[in-house]
Design a protein around this nucleic acid. Structure first.
Lengths: 154, 154
DNA sequence: ATATCTGCAAAGACTTTGCATGAGA
DNA sequence: TCTCATGCAAAGTCTTTGCAGATAT
């Protein structure tokens, strides 16, 4: 069973060191949780998961670590409308191909979809070029979310 | 000088009544602030603006009102990555054609852009149809944000 | 007249920070 | 060894809520 940062020894680990950070048990554990899940976990949810294998780890460490991961581009941070940050591995997990989100405005369920992604990304890429030029804005990533009502909530 | 809900007497006002809500001075004032600005105000910023003409109004009322406005679809709620909700009139202001956002990851400046919007919206519309069918998901709105570095922060 | 709305203050939720201890390289 | 990371608890922000008085219809 491969996990996102089992390649920690090379990929993530290396990326950490490259930025002058250390790979610790807590950080490893948080990366493992993120790479095992297909959900969009909040800091507290990550903490609860981490707790199962690493019960001495604290919530503050989760916050500090995910912030770090966002900074170095390994993790994406989202808000799906409930005033709470949710985190998702950018790459490197079997669960996580590039995708966009459908968010139910009623039950707050979030569906990842990969359909149409290619077309979307293609247009985005074109748009990015135009925007970069016009606004002299260097684009790093995009967020596409559709809001509406899921099958159960209609 | 026309403002977003000077048409309150008809448009917004009517919408309020239609949902069984009352049009009050506080609500009017908040709508006015939102329709006059081209920025993406947080609740506190709205409160400060409202204060100038309606100093007895409280922050809690701003929160309650924008929540209401989001529910009835007059206002959109965003999070641009700083764990703080920001609000924007959906329609009805001279400042607010349909647009998407460029967010600077460094200074947090947000640029509204309307270029490429038509193409984007067209593709989105097509995507929405496909997603609606596949996931039986009724799409109400979308969010597109590009994150990167603005001209000053590169 | 009366159901809804508001201001205030208090509580709640999420996130950040300070500091002494512990752990990676 | 020496610097960086962590745990804990406290503090900081943003947001929600309870309630009595005020207001729109």
């Amino acid at each position: 069973m491969r996990r996102g940062c089992e390649e920690a020894s090379d990929g993530c680990h290396g990326k950490f060191r490259g930025f002058g950070y250390r790979m610790t048990l807590a950080r490893q554990s948080i990366l493992d949780v993120l790479s095992r899940t297909s959900k969009h976990l909040s800091a507290e949810e990550i903490y609860h998961e981490v707790y199962k294998t690493h019960p001495t780890s604290g919530l503050a460490t989760v916050y500090r670590t995910v912030e770090l991961l966002v900074q170095i581009g390994l993790v994406n941070k989202f808000d799906f409308g409930d005033n709470r940050a949710r985190y998702e591995l950018e790459i490197g997990s079997e669960h996580k191909a590039h995708h966009h989100h459908l968010v139910c405005m009623n039950c707050r369920r979030v569906i990842d979809y990969t359909d149409f992604i290619e077309e979307e990304v293609e247009l985005l890429s074109k748009t990015e070029k135009g925007l970069s030029k016009k606004y002299n804005f260097q684009i790093k990533k995009h967020i596409i979310q559709f809001y509406g009502l899921c099958d159960k909530c209609q």
